[in-house]
Each structure stands twice: as structure tokens, then as C-alpha cells.
Nucleic acid binder design. Sequence first.
DNA 1: CCGGGTTTCATTGTATACATTGAGAGAGTG
DNA 2: CACTCTCTCAATGTATACAATGAAACCCGG
Lengths: 222, 222
Amino acid sequence: MATGRASDRAYETLRREILQWRLAPGTVLGEVEQATRLGISRTPLREALSRLAADGLVETQTGRGLVVAAVSPDAVRGLFELREALETAAAALAAERREPTVFAELAERFDGAADLVEQGDLDAYYALVARFDDAIDASLDNAYLVAALRGVRTHLQRIRRLAYDDPARLVRAASEHRTIAEAIRDGEAELARTATYVHLRASLRHIRSTPHLDAARPKESP
Amino acid sequence: MATGRASDRAYETLRREILQWRLAPGTVLGEVEQATRLGISRTPLREALSRLAADGLVETQTGRGLVVAAVSPDAVRGLFELREALETAAAALAAERREPTVFAELAERFDGAADLVEQGDLDAYYALVARFDDAIDASLDNAYLVAALRGVRTHLQRIRRLAYDDPARLVRAASEHRTIAEAIRDGEAELARTATYVHLRASLRHIRSTPHLDAARPKESP
DNA sequence: CCGGGTTTCATTGTATACATTGAGAGAGTG
DNA sequence: CACTCTCTCAATGTATACAATGAAACCCGG
């Protein structure tokens, strides 16, 4: 343990805690307080906080210093507007790149993913989605777009904790992912774009349909 | 002078110098060297460098520390793929917001912008484009999307120095902007999206048609 | 009881001293 | 002559001490 740079460890720790709702939105992050808690000095902690601010996970609240960013229905709308712009474009570009082998395999995996979900192996399903995202990123060969997608996925992780883990939804999501993967495999850019659009709207509808924990409340660790 | 935080001043100064090609791509930014030059200590300088790295203006080169990010034809492609995704979505969303007054005025201004360019008042034209961008941002009401757009525009400033200030192109660009503003004014989302797509492709074609200063060379300040 | 000014003190911003790392020079050997 | 191992040192990473800022508490006059 305690490997690598202290600022990196602090960044990873705080990031994880924020995404897991261990640090609730609105929590004030005092420098001395957090540095003491993490067992490092203020200098590397400040660097970690800078990076979190660049990610949009913490914000400077007037006077009170840095606080964990809020998660409001309005923020969800904004995030999905950005997500739609980025992911539809990414799917279309990936299809145009014509690298079918990876996406052919992913399409088959998504075909069997409903079984995974129904057997309760949600982690395996999420790992498959992560592989799909990685395949998209690799085929894009575009550092700017990949960086923007990474930022969206970061914030999405936090929102997922409000709504996900509904097997019925995940079975449908797997089917949607399969459609997208097949379109990319076949080089059908417009189909990939539209299928992504359909998937994202279904995802947003599902999130909005669940009882909102609008108030910021910490959540048990899994 | 010397107002505000030292880290802010260092960030603004370095950012400006990078965008103006005063600091050429590939330039190594040693901490002690830059801190001495800017008359501050290493602590606030490091904070400024962190923010520049988050912006993508500087990158960590293995071993040699931080260097000013490269500008390659591949980077231009990547930036325009992201720009297309963001700006077409932004134009469509702005049209859907139905706030015609600002864009009606901007459309009229762009109608007269050809005269500005032909009279050589390029700064007035660029100021008009900046007002247009601000109007889009304001109507979006979406912090995530606006932040992503800001990042794209930052990198675009650096690329513009390779190619722009061609009056013939700017006259056509003004016409394209007018078309977009009118579409937003009239609430025609798909037209706004498509007109933006046309504008960006013309802009990219123009940049690619100019003799490339691929090698990183500093440019005189204006 | 209320408003305004002042003081205090916690918190952030900055400087500097110390620790650590890794790249390059140099010597030694096959 | 090439290769490798070690050594050196300049650079970054970290800790801590000091400065400055601003928010809350408190006092005092009205």
C-alpha cells in the first residue's frame, strides 16, 4: 500500500468516495481536515482537489471553499444533453472506422448478457459495458473526444447510484447495446448513431422514472 | 498590477502565451524556470500548470516533465470531430429553447458583417462571433455542455493562428453564421444543426487548405 | 432590541526547505 | 568499441512555516 504519489492516491480516494456517495453532494472539503484524514500534507491534497475541480466533481462555493458538486434534476438533464451529443457522434465515427472484429465479438457477448443479468451477475454485465466503452475509445483514435467521454462517464457513475440495478432495465439495455455493436460492426454509421440515441433516451427515461433521492444522502458501500 | 491570486495570474499568462504561440508546442516548462520568470514561487506555479494540463494545453512527456501540447494535423481532425459533435448539438438545443430576440439581433449583425471584414475591421468581426458564442452558451443553460464548448474554443484559438485572417473566408463565414442565427431565431432545430455542420466543414476545409506550419514555430505577437 | 463596526480566528494562499526520483554522464569490463 | 553498471545531480514531489484573507462572533452606541 501507499504506492505512487500522494497526490494521485488522494485524488483516486476522494474521487471514489464522491462517486460512491460516501462524500455526499454539498459536503465541505476543508484542506486541513481532508489532509489529516488521508494522512498527507496540504500540498498534494490541494493538487488532488484541483483535479477534482477540473473534473467538475467539486465546486467552489462562495466563501465556504470547495464542496462536493450537487446532483440536481437539472444537472442530469445537462449531462444527458452532453452525453447524447458525444456518444451519438462517437458511435457514428466508430462505425466509419471499419474495425469489425472487436465489435462483432462484443455484439455476441451482449446477445448473451441477458442471461448474466437474470443470473444476478451484474458485475459481469457492467464489465462488458466497460469493455464496449473501451472499444469505442480505441477505435476513435481521438484524444479530445475520448477525454470528453471520460468526463461524462465519470459523472454518470454518480447518477447511476440513484436509479440503476433494475434487472428489467438492464436486460433491455443489453439488447440496445447489442444493436449498437452490430451497427458499428457492419459500418452503418447512421444506424449506430440512431441506435445510440434510442438507448440514451431510454436510459434517461428510466432514471427519471425512479424515485429521486434529490437530497444528498450518503449510501452504504457495496 | 499584480492583482488577485498568483496562481491565477500565472495560469492566465501561460495560457495566453500558449494560445499566441509565444510558447511553441514542445516547449519544456520547467517549474523553477517558469516560477522565476513569472516572479512567483513553485507552489502557485504548479497549480497553474495543473489547470493547463486539465485544459489539455500542456502534457506530461515521459521523463522530461511538462511540455506545451503539440498541434498536429491529427489533433486538428480530432478537435473538429469533437467540435462538430458539440456545436451541432448546441445549435439545435439553442433553437429548441425559443429565445428569438438575441438571435434575431445577431442575425442582423452578421448580415452587415461582410462590410466590417471588407473594411479591414477584423477585431469587430471576431467580437461579434464571441457574442454569438456567448448567446448560445446562455441559452443552453447547461454547465456541462458549456464547459465542453469552452475547451474546444480554447484549442481552436491556437489552431486559428495557423490559417485564419483570410477576408474571403471570413465573408463566407459571416454568411454561414447568419444562416445559423436565423435558424435558431426561428426555432428550427434541424436547420440550425445542419447549417452548423455545413459551417464547420467549410471551416475545416479552409484550415486544411492553408500551408501548414506543422513544425512548432513561435509567431510574432499582433 | 437592533445595527454597525471591530476584533478574532479559522481557513486558504504562498514561500521555502527537505526528500525522492529518474535521466544522463562516466568509468569499467567483455 | 560497445555495453552495462553506478554515480551524480538536477528536477519534481512533499512537508511545513508564514502571510493574507474573510467570515463569524462580539461589543457598543443608538
